[in-house]
Simulated scan of single mutants.
Amino acid sequence: MQAKKRSVIAELSSGELGYLVTEVRNHLLAGIERELSPLQITAAQFVVLNSIVSGKGRTLSEFCKLLGYDSGAMTRLLDRIEAKGIIRRVENPADRRSYLVELTEQGKAVFPQARQGTQSAFRRMLAGFSEDDAEALRGLLHRILANTAEA
């Protein structure tokens, strides 16, 4: 008599999915940190720079949403990046109570190197993937995001 095999969905639902996603995230961030260390930029700092360049974030609240930080933690992160001379805060013409964040000339010069480093980390993670594998991964991740958005 053969034992019934437990379903993969049941195994993933019992916590394995969370564990795997967390492990992938941790390894991804560690790889990015290694790549960015010569530039003295952290992964979180790169997210801010990339958000500015891509137009996805320029205000404290936008950065908080992107990184999942509270305003105090985000302010401290921005302070550290500003101290490196990579960003500056400027008055927000639409809301004088807040400010916008923009890259300095130094930030504009370092960003392409930082982007190249993060792309190297991503390519290592996708080593051995075919185009079909990568397309399937992207589709599955989008499905998970859609499912969580409905919750």
Rank of each mutant, 00 (worst) to 15 (best):
Q2H: 14
R6G: 08
V8R: 07
V8N: 09
I9L: 15
G15N: 07
G15M: 06
G15C: 05
G15P: 07
L17M: 10
L17T: 06
G18H: 07
G18V: 00
V21Q: 15
N26T: 13
N26E: 12
N26M: 13
L28F: 11
L29G: 04
A30C: 05
E33N: 14
R34Y: 04
R34M: 13
R34W: 01
E35R: 08
E35L: 05
E35F: 01
L36G: 04
S37A: 15
P38Y: 02
P38W: 00
P38L: 00
P38D: 05
L39D: 11
Q40N: 13
Q40S: 14
I41P: 01
T42V: 07
V47A: 11
V48H: 02
L49D: 01
S51G: 15
V53D: 02
G55E: 04
G55I: 08
K56S: 09
K56A: 06
G57H: 04
G57A: 07
R58A: 06
T59Y: 09
T59L: 10
S61H: 10
E62I: 05
L66F: 01
Y69T: 02
S71P: 06
S71V: 05
A73R: 15
M74R: 05
M74S: 05
L77P: 04
L78Q: 11
D79W: 07
R80E: 07
G85S: 09
I86H: 00
I87D: 01
I87G: 03
E91I: 11
N92C: 06
N92I: 05
A94H: 14
R96H: 07
S98M: 09
Y99D: 02
T104L: 10
E105M: 07
Q106W: 09
Q106H: 12
K108F: 01
P112R: 01
A114V: 02
A114Q: 03
Q116V: 02
G117Y: 02
T118F: 10
T118S: 10
A121W: 00
F122P: 00
R124V: 00
M125R: 14
M125D: 01
L126C: 09
A127I: 05
A127Q: 13
F129D: 08
S130T: 15
E131H: 13
A134E: 14
A134H: 12
E135F: 02
R143A: 08
R143H: 04
I144K: 09
I144M: 15
L145Y: 14
N147L: 09
T148A: 11
T148E: 10
A149C: 03
A149T: 11
A149F: 14
A151D: 11
A151K: 13
A151V: 05
A151M: 08
